[in-house]
Amino acid sequence: MQARALNHWFGQGEARKQALYDINLRIARGSLTVLMGPSGSGKTTLLTLLGCLREVQDGSVTLLGHELRGAAAAQNVALRRRLGFIFQAHNLHESLTATQNVVMGLQVLGRVDKDRAQAAAAHALGLLGLSDRLDYLPANLSGGQKQRVAVARALVGNPDVVLADEPTAALDKESGANVVDLLKRLGRARGTTTLMVTHDNRIVERADRVLTLEDGRIVEDRTQG
C-alpha cells in the first residue's frame, strides 16, 4: 500500500478546501499501522483514499499492485473484495442474522456452498467470542457484540488489507485488545496488512508503526518494536 504526492480537496470553487497535503507513505505487508491525529486532520479521508472508496484526485495511490488514480469502477469493485473494512458504526444489515451478515463477507468472493459458508462464518464469530449469538438479529445484540460481528464480517474472507476507522470505540477495553491481537496474529500468519485509525492507547502500544496527521500533513512517523 503506497501513496505518493497525494493531495485531496473537498468542495467546489470558493468552498474548495484542501484536506490532505502531499502525503508520501509506504505501508509494509503484514504490518499493523495506527493512524492518529486531532479531529478533522484528514485520517478518514486518507483511509478512504487508500481503500479505494474515494476517487484519487491528485498524486498516486497503489494498492496491492494496482494504481487507483483514474482506475475503472470494475477494478475498484474487484479490489475491494480483497479488503476488509471495519467502520466506526457496525453497519450490519438489520434483517440478517449474525451468521448471515458474516456470510455476506464471504459470498462477495463468488458462489459458495451454503454449508461451508455457514461453517466459516461460525468459525469467525467463534474467534470473536460470539459462538452463542450466531442466529441473533443485530437488534438483539449489544453494541460491542454488533461491532465484533462487523469485525468477523471483515475478516471472514481472508482479506489482504484491513482498514478500520475507530473500530474499538464501541468495544470494551478487553474486546478491543482481543481484536487487535487477532489482527496481529493474522498479519504474522497470512501477511494481512492493517491500517487503523484509533486513539486507544492500548492499541497504539501494540502497533508496529504510528502515523500522526495534523491539518492534512503527516507530522510524525514512528516505528516501534
Binding site: 469493485v77 474487484a78 479488503l83 473494512f85 467502520f87 453497519n91 438489520e94 462477495v108
Partner: peptide, 15 residues
C-alpha cells in the same frame, strides 16, 4: 431505508 447497508455492501466489493 437500506442506504447504509447497501453502501456497506458496495464497500465490501458487491457490484
Amino acid at each position: 431505508d437500506h442506504m447504509r447497508e447497501y453502501a456497506t455492501f458496495k464497500a465490501m466489493g458487491y457490484g
